[in-house]
């Protein structure tokens, strides 16, 4: 469903990704691993269209996205939870979720779909608060609710557990597990915790110096692979 072929991308003149090829199939959880600075975030930003691809091809459900603006990619079914959450601080919690509805293909006016918030019972109690006033963990839950409002077919998560307290980390992981067990949404996950990756992932890509250094089924990722590509 999502295919990336020979993608080259980067910031300004500098090239970070050098020919990345990757595939995510419907309902699959694909994990993207690699040490710091190997291009994981650059890759997901290029898939979303925040960064323009310099070469290569990104296609989704048969249509080519390489030159499309991010808004169109979101409307065709991609959902993105960026590193650092990127909540709209001046908008209320309700407004943040309603912005998430912009990408929805069946608009239901100004009503928040129950599916978006069923996993986050704390959010409806703070609808009128400003997003910027929430704690990091609450903001991460809001970022999930916001992206789930549009019912994406492919969820791109960039380090969803970074910088939040351990109890919320568990909540977020439960959310990711429940999205996986629903089976309707594929996930492309950038994550540091090997233990968590092992518990949810189906397939793994490991990046090194901007290209795919290793790929394979989750069971094939043995200690040798981990030592070679991931331990610092």
């Amino acid at each position: 469903m999502l295919t990336v072929e020979q993608l080259e991308s980067g910031y300004g003149e500098s090239l970070v990704l050098r020919g990345v090829t990757l595939e995510v199939r419907p309902g699959q959880v694909v994990c993207l691993l690699g040490r710091n600075g190997t291009g994981k975030s650059t890759l997901v930003k290029s898939i979303m269209g925040v960064l323009k691809a310099k070469a290569g091809k990104i296609s989704y459900d048969g249509s080519v996205l390489t030159r499309k603006p991010p808004g169109e990619r979101a409307r065709s079914g991609l959902g993105y939870v960026p590193q650092g959450r990127e909540i709209f601080g001046q908008l209320t919690v309700r407004e943040n979720i309603l912005i998430g509805l912009e990408a929805s293909r069946r608009r239901s006016g100004d009503e928040i779909p129950p599916a978006a918030i069923e996993r986050f019972p704390v959010l409806p109690t703070m609808y009128e608060r400003r997003g910027g006033d929430l704690s990091g963990g609450q903001q991460q839950q809001l970022a999930f609710a916001r992206v789930l409002a549009a019912e994406p077919e492919l969820l791109i998560l960039d380090e969803p557990c970074e910088g939040i307290q351990p109890s919320i980390v568990d909540d977020i992981r439960d959310v990711i597990r429940s999205i996986k067990s629903d089976g309707r949404t594929a996930i492309l996950l950038v994550e540091q915790s090997l233990e968590f990756v092992r518990s949810v992932g189906d397939y793994v890509y490991i990046l090194e110096k901007g290209s795919v250094a290793w790929q394979g089924e989750m069971e094939q990722m043995n200690d040798e692979v981990v030592r070679r590509y991931l331990t610092v």
């Binding site: 990619r73 979101a74 990127e86």
Partner: peptide, 12 residues
């Protein structure tokens, strides 16, 4: 407030 994120959520 955040042009890139707004775009990523489907706003033209």
């Amino acid at each position: 407030q955040n042009r890139d994120m707004a775009a990523c959520l489907g706003i033209s």
